[in-house]
Simulated assay, not measured.
Amino acid sequence: MATAESERAPRPLSQPHVDRMPADPAYQAEIIKAHDGALAAGSAGYLDPRTGLFVLSAGFLAARGTCCGRGCRHCPYVK
């Protein structure tokens, strides 16, 4: 179900929801570093450091204005 932008989660875009991150702290650190780089560059996303898959950044997702409901790792609307 889509969520209005006014219902964004009360956390900075640089902080993903804990339930959407892998359990491995080293992997989490790699993800945060890659995501921070994408946010700083204004990029739509980054390549996951271990899988090579493209992951959308919270900045890109926030600019869309709504949650798509697909479980994005950096969804700024998940509370």
Results as ranks from 00 to 15, higher is better:
Thr3Ala: 14
Thr3Asn: 11
Thr3Lys: 14
Ala4Ser: 13
Ala4Glu: 13
Ala4Gly: 11
Glu5Trp: 15
Glu5Met: 12
Ser6Arg: 13
Glu7Cys: 09
Arg8His: 08
Ala9Tyr: 02
Pro10Trp: 06
Pro10Asp: 11
Pro12Lys: 13
Ser14Gln: 08
Pro16Trp: 01
Pro16Glu: 02
Pro16Val: 03
His17Gly: 04
His17Gln: 07
Val18Gly: 00
Asp19Tyr: 08
Asp19His: 09
Asp19Gly: 08
Arg20Lys: 06
Arg20Ala: 12
Met21Leu: 15
Met21Tyr: 03
Pro22Ser: 03
Pro22Met: 02
Pro22Ile: 01
Ala23Leu: 14
Ala23Phe: 14
Asp24Trp: 12
Asp24Gly: 11
Ala26Trp: 12
Tyr27Ile: 05
Tyr27Asp: 05
Gln28Gly: 01
Glu30Ile: 07
Ile31Tyr: 00
Ile31Lys: 01
Ile32Gln: 05
Ile32Cys: 02
Ile32Tyr: 05
Lys33Leu: 07
Asp36Lys: 06
Gly37Ala: 05
Gly37Lys: 04
Leu39Ser: 00
Ala40His: 00
Gly42Asp: 12
Gly42Met: 11
Ala44Met: 13
Tyr46Gln: 00
Leu47Glu: 07
Leu47Ser: 09
Asp48Thr: 00
Pro49Gln: 01
Pro49Lys: 02
Arg50Lys: 08
Arg50Glu: 03
Arg50His: 04
Thr51Ile: 07
Leu53Ala: 15
Leu53Ser: 15
Leu56Ala: 14
Leu56Asn: 15
Ser57Lys: 10
Ala58Leu: 01
Ala58Asp: 02
Ala58Arg: 00
Gly59Thr: 09
Gly59Glu: 09
Leu61Tyr: 08
Leu61His: 08
Ala62Glu: 09
Ala63Cys: 09
Ala63Pro: 08
Gly65Arg: 09
Thr66Ile: 12
Cys67Gln: 07
Cys67His: 06
Cys68Gln: 14
Arg70Met: 12
Arg70Lys: 14
Arg70Leu: 12
Gly71Lys: 06
Cys72Lys: 08
Arg73Met: 10
Cys75Lys: 09
Pro76Gln: 04
Tyr77His: 08
Tyr77Ser: 06
Val78Tyr: 13
Val78Met: 14
Lys79His: 12
Lys79Asn: 14
